[in-house]
């Protein structure tokens, strides 16, 4: 007993300063980020309407979600479709444009970096797309297309299921130059110039080979960070879709897992069921992130 106490006080004496420094952040991080994940998983096995306390119902929410919910397949399909296009699309566009920006002068690069990053920092600026896509002749895009004689009547970008996914993806790509993009710019800038010289002597012929054999391998940590940012962003499109296309969107064409979650959580107060939706979405996001991290780490 005495020895243990000595052991603990020695331990405390040694690490006290470190633990006190991390305490405020970790307390908040656990309360508002880690704990909610666990609460969500626990609630997903219950029936819970906020007023009465939760009752345990086993896997019934999951059975209902996978077997009995006609909106779930639509939401899952839309979520994966949007994520699979805008995730890799945003990632490679950020990488490509960061690479091109790296080859031009400092002032132009700074100005264009601001331009590319501006949709991300400008808060609700994306609502301008509702005016660009507006379905009458005064809509910006329709006006241009009709003025040029490409189309003869306005296209319903916001409500015609044939165009909604495509038009939404363009908005997402417009907003995809975020923290990952900045990380790529920094990565390109920091590749050691001496490696390029050495590579030129070793017989690297052009800038595409240089990119593949020298630049990308040395930027792998940035690529991994950028991939996480792209994936998280590609699954976080619910709010933007709601702001431009409304909730729910016409014919459920842009109805995602986040909308399904809000439908049961905020509208119907079926918190247990909504938590099952949240848990499935959480597992999909973590799963895809893990797979992509493995792929990037293994590539050589």
């Amino acid at each position: 007993m005495n020895k243990k106490k000595n052991g603990f006080s020695a331990f405390w004496y040694r690490y006290k300063a470190d633990y006190l420094y991390i305490l405020p952040f970790m307390l908040i991080f656990f309360t508002f980020t880690v704990l909610p994940v666990f609460i969500s998983i626990v609630l997903s096995f219950t029936r819970f309407d906020i007023v009465q306390s939760p009752t345990f119902i086993g896997f019934r929410n999951y059975f209902r979600l996978f077997l009995d919910d006609s909106l779930f397949p639509i939401a899952l399909k839309n979520t994966l479709l949007i994520a699979l296009i805008t995730g890799p699309g945003g990632f490679f566009l950020s990488l490509l444009l960061a690479w091109v920006l790296n080859e031009i002068g400092n002032k132009t690069r700074a100005a264009l970096t601001l331009l590319f990053y501006s949709p991300v920092i400008s808060g609700g600026a994306y609502s301008i797309w509702a005016i660009i896509y507006s379905g009458d002749t005064y809509g910006f895009l329709n006006g241009i297309l009709m003025n040029l004689g490409i189309t003869y009547k306005p296209i319903q970008w916001l409500t015609d299921s044939d165009y909604m996914l495509g038009s939404a993806i363009i908005v997402m790509l417009w907003m995809s130059f975020g923290a990952g993009f900045l990380s790529f710019i920094a990565g390109f800038k920091n590749v050691d110039a001496r490696m390029y010289e050495a590579a030129a002597i070793d017989g690297i012929k052009n800038r595409y080979q240089e990119m593949w054999y020298i630049t990308l391998p040395s930027m792998r940590p940035q690529l991994m960070f950028g991939a996480v940012m792209s994936i998280t962003g590609a699954f976080g499109t619910g709010a933007v879709i709601t702001a431009i296309y409304g909730f729910p969107s016409t014919n459920y064409s842009l109805y995602t897992m986040v909308h399904l979650l809000q439908d049961y959580g905020n509208v119907r107060y079926e918190m247990g069921y909504a938590s099952a939706v949240a848990t499935v979405l959480f597992l999909i996001m973590m799963g895809i992130n893990m797979i992509v991290q493995k792929l990037l780490a293994g590539k050589d």
Binding site: L35, S275, F282
Partner: peptide, 13 residues
């Protein structure tokens, strides 16, 4: 925690 966004924890939050 960088790998999921706040949408999934809206209810418990």
């Amino acid at each position: 925690s960088l790998m999921f966004n706040a949408d999934v924890t809206a209810i418990p939050n």
